[in-house]
């Protein structure tokens, strides 16, 4: 109960700070606008104001402060503007509309989930191979670990273009990026998990004369579950980033990444922020969903408290 209160306090503090930050961020633009509309501004003339501090300007033109929370294209939109835009583009728009964030979110989500499924599946297979084959372990594992230190997302634009040039477009190229971004974390986490049973537990199975397969299904796989879910959560977040970045280079027309890019081309800051929040909500839902599955699975296995 107390922790909920603490979280709410922190969130409230962030919102207050956000509103506060809107004033200095937007004041110059607002003053130019109101001056053009005929209002008295101290000092007059955008040129005169350019080198003055935002805080001083806000203090001397306090009548203009409310306007900093209601600009059409603010440098920093106020929270309620972003919320209104989110509401407009999700609930108030038809899903089929090109301006519906649900539509754009779905485009990104489908690529993310498809890629995540492929990457995770292949990752688990490779991990099983690594645990059971010493050659694969020694050959592949160092590279899988090194790959974690490399910004492999830099490959994304190239993958999109190469696949486009061989005639593949749409969801597949983005899914490929999502897949390889989730692949390596899953391999590394799953190998760790499959190796997590200690010597005593493995020796116990040897005293039962259990086969390798029995050892895998009855000990290694269940023991790996907590590790698997930890890396799945990292993987899904990486997949989403991959899908979003995959939407940038071709000037894609649909998807959250496309909304970000279009917003930044046309200076539609409110649109950028709402796309950003949509992506954040999507990420939170995906990670949260995995968390729920994790709890259900671990509870059935009797691991979770």
């Amino acid at each position: 109960m107390k922790s909920v209160l603490a979280v709410l306090t922190v969130v409230a503090a962030i919102v207050v700070l956000w509103y506060g930050a809107c004033v200095p961020m937007n004041i110059k633009g607002v003053l130019t606008e109101v001056e053009r509309a005929g209002a008295e501004v101290v000092p007059p003339g955008a040129k005169e104001r350019r080198d003055l501090s935002e805080f001083a300007l806000a203090a001397r033109n306090s009548f203009a402060i409310p306007a900093t929370w209601a600009q059409e294209r603010p440098r920093l939109p106020a929270p309620h503007q972003v919320a209104a835009e989110l509401w407009d583009t999700t609930v108030a728009k038809k899903i089929t509309s090109k301006r519906s964030l649900i539509y754009h979110g779905w485009v990104t989500l489908s690529a993310t989930v498809l890629g995540f499924a492929i990457g995770t599946g292949l990752g688990i297979l490779l991990a099983v191979g690594i645990v059971h084959s010493r050659v694969m372990d020694m050959s592949v594992m160092p590279w899988a670990i090194v790959s974690q230190t490399i910004p492999i997302i830099a490959l994304a634009p190239m993958i999109i273009v190469v696949l486009y040039s061989v005639g593949v477009q749409g969801i597949i190229p983005k899914a490929v990026i999502s897949a390889y971004l989730s692949f390596f974390p899953v391999v590394v986490g799953m190998v760790k998990g499959l190796r997590s049973p200690d010597m005593m537990q493995l020796d116990l199975l040897r005293t039962y004369n259990a086969t390798n397969a029995q050892g895998f299904w009855k000990l290694r796989l269940p023991a790996s579950m907590p590790y698997l879910f930890a890396s799945l959560k990292i993987g899904i977040a990486a997949s989403l980033v991959g899908a979003i970045v995959g939407e940038l280079p071709t000037g894609a027309v649909a998807g959250l990444g496309a909304r970000l890019l279009a917003g930044s081309y046309y200076g539609q800051t409110v649109q950028i922020w709402s796309a950003l929040f949509a992506a954040a909500i999507l990420a939170a839902c995906l990670v949260g969903l995995l968390g729920l599955i994790e709890r259900a699975v671990l509870r059935r296995m009797g691991i979770a408290a």
Binding site: A237, I272, A284
Partner: peptide, 13 residues
Amino acid sequence: ALPIVGTAPILVM
């Protein structure tokens, strides 16, 4: 856990 790279267009602005 959020896709924070998405803030790039804002920060570039």
